[in-house]
Amino acid sequence: MSRTTDRTGEGHGRLGSTLSGLAVALGCVLFLGGFVWGAIVYQPYTVPTESMTPTIGAGDRVLAQRVDGGDVERGDVVVFKEQAWGDMPMVKRVVAVGGDTVACCTDDKLTVNGKKIDEPYLPKGQAAESKKIPTIKVPDGRLFVLGDERSGSLDSTAHLTEAGSGTVPRSAVKGRVDAVVWPMDGILARPTGFEALGGISSPGPLRLVVAAVVAGAVLVLGGAAYGPIAKRAGRRGRPRTELAGAR
Rank of each mutant, 00 (worst) to 15 (best):
P203L: 03
A217I: 09
V180R: 04
D178W: 04
A211M: 13
T192I: 10
R207P: 09
W182N: 13
T192P: 05
I200H: 01
L206P: 04
L206C: 01
G199C: 04
A189I: 08
S201A: 15
V213T: 12
V177N: 01
A179W: 00
A211Q: 11
V209I: 06
V209G: 00
V220E: 02
G175R: 01
S201T: 08
R176Q: 06
S201K: 07
W182L: 14
G198Q: 13
P203R: 03
G186E: 06
I200F: 01
S201Q: 03
A212I: 11
V180K: 02
E195H: 10
R176W: 05
G175P: 03
V181P: 09
I187K: 13
R207T: 15
V214H: 07
E195I: 07
R207L: 14
A189K: 11
P183C: 02
G198L: 12
G193S: 12
A217Q: 06
V218E: 06
S202D: 10
A212S: 15
G193T: 09
V177Y: 02
V220G: 04
L208W: 13
F194H: 02
A217C: 14
V177T: 05
G216I: 11
A196V: 14
V181N: 09
G198I: 09
L208E: 10
V177F: 03
V180S: 03
P183L: 04
V180L: 00
P205R: 03
V210C: 02
P203V: 04
G216D: 03
I187N: 05
A196G: 14
P205W: 00
V218L: 15
W182T: 13
L188F: 05
L197S: 08
D185E: 15
V181D: 11
V210P: 02
V214A: 12
A196K: 15
R176C: 07
W182R: 13
L206H: 06
G193I: 08
